[in-house]
């Protein structure tokens, strides 16, 4: 299952990593079935995690990070355009990374790098992501899978077992969450409870 696909661009300084719009696609798959009331929080949280990880990935590197029941796959290209996919543990890692590469290429084709500095969420629409997410839910049906696996460039995928391993020294996820402006109070409460019960939807 693929849950989310975000496109981002790493800024020149780490603080201004920007989220390109991927209109409402992020959450479509996971939470159409569960966590009705928390859907918004989960969505915010996924955006937050994506942003955090992208900011801490070096240029021209691939990472896959385990976090609870999810895997976050990140690829930051040489020109600092980055893509994040959130999937479950079963989803083949190689396929995720191939998909990111593919989407980033298409994105650049549509919006070449010189318009990035001025682009805002409103000026960019990239609906192909939706189609890809739907198609790649089942890698068997996605096109020419076996070939795709070979095509993946030689950039090594770095594996991390927790999100903490990606953070800079001295940073803690709990602090980042508390400080974050992108998360609403409700989402922060959601995060706390989820942390405590170690699952996202079964409270109480």
């Amino acid at each position: 299952m693929l849950a989310s696909l975000n496109l981002k661009r790493q800024g020149w300084t780490k603080q201004i990593a920007r989220l390109f719009p991927v209109n409402n696609v992020r959450i479509t798959y996971i939470h159409s079935t569960k966590c009705f009331f928390q859907r918004g929080s989960v969505e915010e949280f996924m955006a937050f995690v994506s942003k955090t990880i992208v900011e801490r990935t070096q240029t021209a590197a691939r990472q896959s990070v385990k976090e609870g029941e999810y895997m976050c796959h990140v690829y930051v290209r040489g020109d600092n355009l980055a893509g994040v996919i959130i999937s479950d543990h079963e989803y083949p890692q190689r396929v995720s990374h191939t998909l990111i590469t593919k989407v980033l290429d298409e994105f650049t084709e549509k919006y070449p790098s010189h318009i990035w500095p001025t682009a805002t969420e409103a000026t960019i629409t990239f609906n192909q992501v939706k189609t890809y997410l739907a198609k790649y839910q089942n890698p068997r049906e996605a096109d020419a899978m076996t070939k795709i696996q070979e095509e993946l460039d030689e950039t090594k995928i770095i594996l991390h077992n927790t999100i903490e391993a990606v953070l800079d020294r001295g940073e803690k996820l709990d602090d980042l969450v508390a400080k974050s402006e992108g998360l609403s109070t409700q989402s922060k409460a959601f995060y706390k409870t989820a942390r405590k019960t170690n699952s996202c939807c079964n409270f109480g």
């Binding site: 009331f37 928390q38 706390k192 989820a194 409270f203």
Partner: peptide, 8 residues
């Protein structure tokens, strides 16, 4: 569906 919301 039935859910419990994290409102403490």
């Amino acid at each position: 569906d039935f859910e419990i919301l994290p409102v403490t």
